[in-house]
């Protein structure tokens, strides 16, 4: 099985990062890390590949930087990576991101595409479904359990109240939730081999996009303003005079949790 896994390199969530005051874009540091949510996709990809003697190819659109995040995923065991890194992509919105990723994935060929459900930094949660539509395959989203069937994939799709069982023939796209599997640690051997694994770097043009089809020029989405998160206000303190529980119940009813 040829498995394409979408992985995003993001600024390390543990260290604060900035938004450009004019463009409102994330100022991307040279060292970006693998989005934690994508580790689950990589792990599912590796397990399916191991069971089918398949291959795992990573796809990522971002300024390459030190490629630290990609190496993390290669160190887990992926076979190769395709990066789309191009100045013209600056300011791309989610749909353009999906178009670019879809074009790269189609160019490489695939039986299954895997993505996270929602990235940690952008969290629009639309990229997987858009890619499925663009490469014209069924999408199995919010998988909390994945199983290979005869010629297809069956998942447990997380729902508000439980799960649905959803099945589709291959080729297909799968978006996985955090917790679907326990991602492996990169092994030291994997870390040392990661350096030697092929990383193809493509431009938007390589994928047939002209400068006005991508980036800010093509974005249907603009960020009009950015506000800092308001400082948290002091909470309300309920003094317990023996009847405190009644006040808490009233508060919970007020916010409609009970």
């Amino acid at each position: 099985m040829r498995i394409a896994v979408c992985v995003k390199q993001i600024p390390d969530p543990a260290t604060p990062y900035d938004l450009d005051p004019v463009t409102h874009r994330v100022v991307r540091p040279n060292d970006q890390v693998l989005d934690d949510t994508d580790r689950f996709g990589v792990e599912v990809g590796l397990q399916l590949a191991e069971a089918s003697e398949g291959t795992v190819t990573l796809f990522s659109m971002s300024p390459s930087g030190s490629l630290q995040g990609i190496r993390q995923a290669l160190a887990m065991g992926a076979d190769k990576a395709v990066i789309i890194d191009d100045e013209n992509l600056a300011g791309s919105d989610a749909l353009t991101t999906s178009r670019v990723l879809a074009a790269a994935i189609e160019r490489e060929g695939f039986d299954l595409v895997i993505a996270g459900t929602e990235s940690t930094d952008g969290y629009t949660g639309v990229v997987p479904q858009q890619i499925a539509e663009l490469v014209d395959v069924p999408s199995l989203t919010f998988a909390r359990k994945v199983e290979v069937t005869d010629g297809g994939i069956r998942i447990e799709q997380q729902t508000a109240g439980g799960y649905d069982v959803v099945e589709a023939p291959l080729p297909a796209l799968l978006s996985v939730t955090s917790g679907v599997v326990e991602p492996r640690y990169p092994t030291f051997k994997g870390i040392m081999q990661a350096k030697k694994k092929p990383i193809d770097t493509l431009t938007a043009e390589d994928l047939g996009f002209s400068a006005d089809q991508v980036g800010e020029a093509a974005a249907g989405q603009t960020i009009t303003s950015v506000e800092p998160i308001p400082a948290r206000e002091a909470g309300e303190i309920v003094e317990d005079d023996g009847e405190g529980y009644l006040k808490i119940v009233a508060l919970l009813e007020q916010v409609k949790v009970i």
Partner: peptide, 14 residues
């Protein structure tokens, strides 16, 4: 180097 940092980070995470 990157490799050393990745090994260090992996152990830190473990």
């Amino acid at each position: 180097d990157d490799e050393e940092r990745l090994i260090r980070d992996t152990v830190r995470e473990f």
